[in-house]
């Protein structure tokens, strides 16, 4: 599945109400490490249908960043059943991100 951009208008529908786990990638255009993590996320998204990955630009969506306590990017937050399951900050290797999504 392709990574879609999410805003505060559709965050509930795309993330909180999702039947499958969702990884939210909080990022910004000026953030180097965010640009480096994106190809890894694209790869994971194309390989897996059992979860979804969405992107939130923190400059456009500062309310979402504030609401979910994002103070450093790249910040990846996994939601399951409408609530936060786990998160990571900074660059992470692919396996670790898959682990965040797949772990029980």
């Amino acid at each position: 599945m392709k990574i879609i951009d999410v805003s505060k208008d559709n965050f509930k529908e795309e993330v909180l109400d999702s039947k499958i786990p969702v990884l939210v990638d909080f990022n910004a255009d000026w953030c180097g490490p965010c640009k480096m993590i994106r190809p890894i996320l694209d790869e994971i998204a194309s390989e897996h249908d059992e979860y979804r990955i969405v992107s939130v630009n923190i400059d456009d969506e500062d309310e979402l960043a504030e609401e979910y306590g994002v103070f450093s990017i790249p910040c990846l937050v996994v939601f399951r059943g409408g609530s936060e399951y786990t998160r990571s900050i900074g660059l992470r290797p692919k396996e670790e991100i898959e682990g965040m999504l797949g772990g029980d």
Binding site: V70, F71, S72, I73
Partner: peptide, 17 residues
């Protein structure tokens, strides 16, 4: 608390404050 207030990079995280 890294990423929840503790940071090692002002130019990376300053915008959140």
């Amino acid at each position: 608390l890294i990423g929840k207030g503790v940071s090692y990079c002002a130019t990376c995280d300053g915008a959140f404050y």
